[in-house]
Computed example of a mutant assay.
Amino acid sequence: MRVAVPALALTLSAVAMLAGCASSEPGPVEYGSVEDLLDAYLAAGGGPCNDWQQTNLVTLSAESGNCADGDAVLMTFTSEENRDAAVEGLHEYADMLGLHLLVGPNWIVNASDVRDVRGSLAGTLVMKEPTE
Rank of each mutant, 00 (worst) to 15 (best):
L101R: 08
E88R: 12
Q54E: 07
H91Y: 00
E80W: 08
G104M: 13
N106F: 11
D95H: 02
T55V: 12
N110Q: 14
L97V: 05
V73F: 13
E81S: 09
S79W: 06
N106R: 12
D95S: 07
T78I: 11
L74T: 07
T76I: 15
P105N: 10
V73G: 12
V58H: 04
S64C: 08
V73R: 15
G104H: 13
N110F: 15
H91T: 02
F77M: 03
F77A: 02
N66L: 09
E81G: 09
L90Y: 11
D95V: 03
P105A: 12
L74D: 11
E92L: 10
S79R: 03
D69K: 02
E92M: 11
N106V: 10
N82E: 03
S79Y: 08
L101P: 04
S79E: 13
D69N: 01
E63P: 03
L102D: 03
Q54P: 00
S112A: 14
Y93T: 00
N106Q: 14
V103Q: 04
S112N: 08
A72W: 04
N82H: 00
Y93V: 00
N82C: 00
N106A: 10
A68V: 00
A86C: 02
L102C: 09
G65C: 01
S61L: 03
E80H: 09
M75L: 15
V58W: 00
E63C: 11
A62E: 14
N106Y: 14
N106W: 11
V58A: 12
M96N: 09
H91M: 04
G89W: 00
V73Y: 12
I108G: 10
I108Q: 10
V109F: 12
W52G: 06
L99Y: 00
L74C: 11
T76C: 14
V73N: 15
H91E: 05
E63A: 11
T59Q: 12
V87I: 12
N82G: 00
Q53C: 08
L74Q: 04
L97W: 01
Q53Y: 12
N110A: 15
M96V: 13
T59C: 01
M75G: 11
M96C: 06
A68C: 04
H100E: 07
T59K: 13
L97E: 06
E88I: 09
N82R: 00
N66E: 05
H91I: 01
L90P: 01
Y93M: 00
L97M: 07
S61G: 09
E88P: 02
L102Y: 06
M75T: 15
L101D: 10
A68S: 13
Q54H: 00
D84A: 15
M96Q: 14
L102A: 13
D95I: 01
D71T: 07
C67L: 08
E88S: 13
